[in-house]
Simulated assay, not measured.
Amino acid sequence: MIGQFKSLFAHWTRALRRRLAGNIYHPEEHYMRGPGPKTRAKFADRKSAGS
């Protein structure tokens, strides 16, 4: 019985913390800047082989 109460209480506190914290994920902090040097090298090889 006490274990069930602790579990329910933990669930409620997690939900309350999430609501009070608001939107934690900010996509502008996780943007990709573009292809890296390996991708550029791979496509450069394809362009030179096709010509």
Rank of each mutant, 00 (worst) to 15 (best):
M1E: 15
M1L: 15
I2W: 12
I2M: 13
G3P: 13
Q4Y: 13
Q4A: 14
Q4D: 14
K6F: 01
S7Y: 02
L8H: 05
L8I: 01
L8C: 02
F9N: 02
F9Y: 02
F9G: 00
F9D: 03
A10E: 06
H11Y: 12
H11G: 11
H11T: 10
T13M: 05
T13V: 08
T13G: 00
A15V: 09
A15C: 09
A15D: 11
L16D: 06
R17T: 12
R17E: 15
R17Y: 13
R17D: 14
R18S: 13
L20G: 03
A21N: 07
A21W: 01
G22Q: 06
N23A: 12
N23F: 04
N23S: 08
I24Y: 10
I24F: 12
Y25K: 01
H26T: 09
H26A: 03
H26G: 04
H26E: 06
H26R: 10
P27T: 04
H30T: 09
H30Y: 00
Y31W: 13
Y31V: 15
Y31K: 12
Y31D: 12
M32I: 13
R33H: 12
R33Q: 15
R33C: 10
G34V: 08
G34K: 02
G34L: 06
G34A: 07
P35T: 06
P35S: 03
G36T: 07
G36I: 05
P37H: 00
K38T: 07
T39E: 03
T39A: 02
R40F: 09
R40Q: 07
R40T: 08
R40C: 02
A41N: 03
K42M: 10
F43V: 02
F43H: 03
A44H: 00
A44Y: 00
A44D: 05
A44V: 00
D45R: 13
D45M: 10
D45F: 11
R46V: 08
R46D: 02
K47G: 01
K47I: 00
S48W: 09
S48L: 14
S48G: 10
A49M: 10
A49S: 10
G50K: 15
G50Y: 15
G50H: 15
S51T: 14
